[in-house]
Each structure stands twice: as structure tokens, then as C-alpha cells.
Design a protein around this nucleic acid. Structure first.
Lengths: 236, 236, 236, 236
DNA sequence: GATGAATGAGGTTTCATTCAT
DNA sequence: TATGAATGAAACCTCATTCAT
């Protein structure tokens, strides 16, 4: 055990280096830019060694997605611990999501690739389920807040909507907005000068539309967000 | 003119057949399933002929996306002609979008691919701009309704929001929801049994949150939709 | 006839322009630099029109070779008419060859291509025989001078050499030197500052070596060449 | 070391087999007869494997040229070691060149291709400089003998000729004669029954013309050549 | 575990030639 | 006769993946 540690450490570090180079390749040149030969060349290892870490190219992509998805999960879990009214806790989630988006924009690139079936298919079930768990954890965190809000009367669902369906609406809005922002270069030209802020505003409108109390007109959002940043994300 | 037809017709038909086969390849097996050799083989033409129609694989993808995007544009333009209050005209747009989604689910597959920069880069500027025009036309149709609503007092924007930004919110919600639905197989397992209806409900909630009159509680949605279908989409 | 002439002229001029462009393509990039598409493009005519002039690519090559071969033949025939001793007539041939080389360096490129069986095969028999006639005429002109020299005692062949073999030696020396000069950029760097003059000197040395009278030490070469230029090539 | 040999040997042998097949393709049909697909087919290896050995088609051509150029260099260097008068050492060079030509006729084809800029450009600088070194070595060997001859009075250059220019003459004569012989099928028909011997005779004539002592009339060439073969080339 | 040569499917390009208009 | 889009054979080259050492 004492002997194995340094070796295992080295192996893990190599795995990380592979991911790190792969990430920058994808960020720079997208899917076609990810190239097993060039990874091997830049790391000065053999191609075979890469295959000891990742059984195929797609496994690298999902590993990258998991890496960032785990960061999102911890951000969401941290946000959910904010003490206060349910609507404010949703604000904390929004803030977490915003931070995630700003620091890990590349995640959307990975996710887009994994939503192409022919790519996802080649990934291992193991990593697929890790990925799903991360996503499910995020949904559950948000779902928990929704249920809390229903339980304490802050939110009263009509249309026979379920908590999961509320989450789906918010997820759709954010996933859609972030995908569009991350992959469009000309938003400014079509009159969208502050797309991230616009997304945040729409989130508030949607929650208002659902009747989630207190309504956005009843409190000062900036003040709450400052409090959230001080309490929840101060170490991040 | 009578003489010109057969040759030109044949050429155009071949272009269409290429797209048709390519579409089914992508639907079945995604990006990797699209294979120039196999297209040539199945159509019994040479690869060179395919490249006379489409200069690369990615051009086929964008041609497919344009094909469907044009259908969306006509649906949106038809929907916008519905006579009635602005909120009902938005409902008509929602109905158009729904029909588009149900009949051309594969569009989201194409669009997802085109949002990967390394794929988009290889497409011709010409087709890129056709694609953008289709999208812009849709946005303008919706933007026009928003502006009408503002003009006649149905909608009063707070938060210094612009009409374009309202459209962005709806676009994000729908793009996000439809992407998720089109690329997820296990929504049912996580409690989303009617995702399309849920998306529609959230749209209504968002419009309510924006204060768009009449609010969803003030009219019978199903009745209006029936009217829309009768008047606008009866021939479609 | 009055009407046809301008048309025929135009057609012939186009044929010439095709050859002219093809020549420069081959000079720059050899066989695989010759490209029917690019000829059409540069002449702003259609590819089909080229095929009205030359039935295939290889016919262009042999047409180019014939064009220059005919020029060489007339130069040689003109040179052979110089009145004077056989050695001086050889000097005239050398001068003709020099002029040919300087003005039609590319001829050697064409000749080389036509030595490749798969290329020669595709040319028409008609042009093949025209080509052969031109070459034979040149050799006969030189061979005639050699035989004259032998007949009148200027040249006495030892080593049981024949007139044809004498021609071969001169041909080799010139062909080799000209090929090297035509395709080397760095002769100056390796100490060859006047390669053409060097070739001429070696020709004289070779004729001296063969004992062809008068030896180069017995007359003023420059003076004779001036006379040749005045009498034989003054119109060229 | 014992373990490494079989694998490495096999790899090297495959590289050699690629060159061997490529050589015959070029000999038969020139540049466009060289075909990566057909090499793979005939060797029953994959195309990728060929590209592991040679990064492009042109690298094969230059590799072939280097292979033969190195043989010429060793022949020349061996020849230069012949002990005897300078004229006899030149005879040894002539003998080396003759042997080279007879065994590696195809070299001239490769050399010609490499004179086409668009072909040479694609070859690696590394191989280009190897090639240049081989050629320079040959010229220096001959140049050395010329200078020795001048130094010891065997050769007295008139016409302000330099040692390099003497080499150029010999090079031209041999290159030209060998190119013609290598690429002509019908020399016999035009009266050239022993072109190689004729070339050798002309070399002697040229050297006689230059006054290189002893003149060919002053010694028995065959006897000297026999001696050269016994001393210098007996192992070759 | 590490290596890297071998594999071979497949994307892309090129180009001579044909043929309907 | 001129045109040039269409054709399709032929190659070049890339790259993810495998496997013997």
C-alpha cells in the first residue's frame, strides 16, 4: 500500500492531464479538434496508454462532462443550504447556476456532444450513470426546494403540475438560454445585449407566473443576492 | 422551357434524394451515421456526384436544418395571421411550434450539431445566412406580436425589458425544453410524463409572470386553440 | 469563304492559346500541373471547347512537343545550309541547338512525358508520326554533315565509330547539359557561373577529341559564329 | 537486443518492400503510376501502414532517389581510391558511373521528378539535405581528381576553365546519354547499337580534347579498366 | 502497464471526360 | 459550336482503435 500510492498517484495525475489537454482541444477546435494522436504527442505518452485510462474518445468527453457536472452539483448543494424563504433559496440556485455557467461554459459544449446519440452510445454505462446522478442530484436539490415551498404555502401549484414539472420548466429555460448564449456569437446584433441578465429576469417572471411567494415585486433581489454570496459562496 | 425541365428536375430530385437518405441516416445513427460512402452506395451514384451537390458532410446537415427551419418559418408566419388579441396570437405561435416539434423532431438533432462550432465552421456562409434568416424571421414574427401587445396595452414591460428580450425568454424555454425532450429517453422515469404539455404550461406561466393580458386564468385556452386550428392550420 | 476566314482564324487562335497556357502549366508543375479545368478557367472558355480542339489531355502534350520540334527542325535545316568546312557547319548546328534550347527549354519536358508509355499510348498515331519525322530530320541533318566530313577527310573515325554515334555524343552532351541547366537553380553556388558557355566549350573539346579538322586551336570560333549568325540566322 | 531484432527487422523490410514496389510503378508509368492504394493492395498491407513509413507520396520518391544516390556515392568514393595517374582515376570514375547506370537506371526518373518544384516542395527538408549531400559528395570526388591532375601537370586548362566546369562537362555528357538511353526504346533503329560504349568513347574523346594526359591513344584502356575492376570493384 | 506499428473505414479532393441544352 | 453542370473513377490522407511485444 505504501508502495502503490506513488504509482497510483502518478496514474491519476496522468488521467487528469489527459482530460486537461482534451478540454483545451475541444474548447479550441470542438469535436473535430479532439485527437488521440495529438493528446499522446503533447503528453509524450503512447496512444495505448491513453486507452488504459479511457476506453474510447467518447469516454474522454463524458469524463469531462462529469468533471464539470460535479462542480455544478456542489454549487447547487451549497446554494440549497441558504437559510431563508423558499423563493430566496431559488435565487441562490440561480446564483449557483450563473457561477457555474460563467466558470464552466465549456460544459455546454460537452453536454451538446453527449446529446448526440451516436456519441453517447459509445460511453460506458458506468459513466453514464454517474452523469445522470449528478444531474438527478441537481434536480432533486431544486425539487426539494419546490416541495418545501409547496409544504409551507409559498407555492400553490395549479394545472395539476408536479414539483418535477416545475423543475423541468426552470431547467428548460436555463438550459436553453445557456446553450444559445454559449453557441451564438451574434446575440448583440439581434438586440440581446445582456442575455445572462435577461435569463435571470425571465426566471423571476416564470416564478412570479407560478405565483411563488414572495413575488419579485415584493423584495429587493439585489440585496438578497448579496446576502447569498456572503453566506453561501464566500469560500468559493 | 418544356425541354429544360427533365434534366434540371432530375438534378434537383437527386439533391432531394441525397438529403432524404442523409436525414434517415442521421435520425437512425446521428452524426457518425451520416456517411458519404453509404449515401453514394444506396443511391447508386458516385461520391463525386454528392460533392457536386454538397461540398462537405456538414453542408448536408445545414441543408437539412434549413429545410426544416423553412417549415418552421411558414408555420410561424401562418400562426401570426391569427386574428384576435395578442395573447391569443402568442398561443397560435405556441401551437405552430408544437406542430413543428412533433413533425420535425429531427430538426433539433441537426440544430444541435450545428451549434458545435467545428461543425458549423465547415458550412458555407451562404447557407449559414439562409439559416439565420429563417431564425430571424421567426424571431421577428414573435417580436412583432410582442410589440403589438405593448402598443395596445396588453403587455407592459417592467425591468426595462425590450421586445427582443421577451422573445429570447420564450425561445430559450422552448429550445431548452425541446432539446431536452428530443434527446432524453428517460424523462418518464424522472417524473416527467407529459413534457410537451408541461412546456406549454410553463409558457403560459411565463407570459402570466410578464403580465401579458388576458392572463391564462381569464380565458379558456383549449377553446382558443381549437379556434386557431380551425382558422390557421386547417390546410396544414 | 470570305465569311469563314475570320471564324477559322478565331478557332486557330484559340487552339494556340490553349497550347500556350498548357505550356506554362507544364513548365511550372510538370505533368500533374496540366489541368483541363484550369485551362478553361484561364482562357474563359468552357471545357467542352477544349475538347473540340484536342481529343484528350495527352494530345495537348504531343501538340506542344510537335510545335517545338518543328522549330528545332527548321533551325537545324537552316544551320546545315551554312557554306563552309564541315567543322564550321557543325558549329552552325551547335548555334542552332543553342538558340533552340534558349527559346524552347520546355521542349525537353514534353519529350520526357511522351517517353512514358501510358501517356504516349493515348496520343493519336497521326501526331506520333509527325513527331518522329521531326526528330529523324534533325538527326539526318547532323548525320549528313558527319558523313560529309568523313568523305572529305575532315574527320577520320577511329574506334569503329559510326556517323550516328558521333551525333549521339553531341546530342548527349547537349541534352544532359541543357536538362541540368533547365532544372537547377543553384549552379552558380557550385562554381558553374557560365554553364551554357561551358557546354559550348565542351562541344569543341569533344570535336577536337574526335580529331575533327580544323581543330578549335586552328581557327577563331567567335569569328565563325558571327559569320554564321549573319548568314544563316539573320532573319530568325 | 535479441528480442528487438525480429520486429524491427520486419518493419524495415516492409519499408523496403514499399520502396521496391513503388520503384517498379514509377519505372512503368511515371509519377501518376505511383499509387498508394495499389501499393497497399499488392503488399497486402493497409494504406495507413504506408503512411507510417512515408508521410506522403513524394517522400517515397525522394527515398528512392536517396537509396540509389547513396549507392552512386559509394561507387564514386571507391573509384577515387584507385592508385594511379589522374586520367586512370577518371577512368575508374567512369567505370563506377557505368556500373551505377547499369544497375540503377531508374535513378534518373526519380531525379527528374524531384526537379519539379511542386513535387520537391512536399518532401521533408531532412531527406532533401541527405539527397544534396550525396550529390555534392560525387561532384567533390570528381573535382578532387581534376584538381590533382592540374596540380601534377596531367591537365592544363585553357579557355579559363575551372575544375568545376570540367566536372560539369563530364556530368552533362553522362547525364544526357544515360537519360536518353534510359528513356528510349528505339535507339537501335536509328543506328545506335552500343550507346553505352559510345558514351564511354565520347568521354575519352572529351578528356583527350581537354588534353588530359595520358591521351587515350597513349595507353590501353581495356587493360587499365581490368586493373580497376580487380582492385577497386572486386567486392562489389 | 506501456508502447507504437498496423489497421482500415471513410472523408475529401481532384480531374478527365461526357452530354443535354 | 459553345457551354458547364454532371459524372464517377481514382487517389490522397486522417484517425480511432487494436494488439503483439
Amino acid at each position: 500500500m505504501v508502495d502503490l500510492t506513488p504509482k497510483k498517484l502518478e496514474i491519476q495525475q496522468r488521467g487528469d492531464r489527459i482530460l486537461s489537454i482534451a478540454r483545451s482541444m475541444i474548447v479550441d477546435d470542438g469535436y473535430h479538434g479532439l485527437n488521440m494522436d495529438r493528446i499522446a504527442e503533447q503528453l509524450e505518452i503512447s496512444k495505448g496508454t491513453i486507452y488504459n485510462h479511457f476506453s474510447c474518445k467518447e469516454e474522454i468527453i463524458i469524463a469531462l462532462a462529469i468533471e464539470t457536472a460535479e462542480k455544478r452539483r456542489s454549487l447547487f448543494q451549497a446554494a440549497a443550504q441558504f437559510r431563508g424563504r423558499s423563493r430566496f433559496r431559488m435565487l441562490a440556485i440561480g446564483e449557483a447556476d450563473l457561477r457555474f455557467f460563467q466558470e464552466h461554459t465549456s460544459h455546454f459544449e460537452f453536454e451538446r456532444m453527449l446529446r448526440i446519440p451516436s456519441i453517447l452510445e459509445k460511453t460506458s454505462e458506468k459513466r453514464q450513470s454517474v452523469m445522470q446522478m449528478c444531474e438527478a442530484a441537481c434536480m432533486q436539490v431544486v425539487g426539494g426546494i419546490v416541495r418545501d415551498a409547496i409544504a409551507n404555502g409559498d407555492l400553490e401549484l395549479t394545472n395539476s403540475m408536479t414539483a418535477e414539472e416545475v423543475v423541468f420548466g426552470l431547467w428548460s429555460l436555463h438550459y436553453g438560454a445557456q446553450s444559445i448564449i454559449a453557441s451564438s456569437e451574434n446575440l448583440d446584433q439581434i438586440g440581446l445585449h445582456r442575455p445572462v441578465e435577461t435569463m435571470t429576469t425571465h426566471t423571476a417572471m416564470l416564478l412570479d407566473g407560478l405565483g411563488w411567494l414572495p413575488l419579485s415585486t415584493e423584495f429587493d433581489e439585489n440585496e438578497v443576492i448579496e446576502q447569498i454570496n456572503n453566506e453561501v459562496f464566500k469560500n468559493v
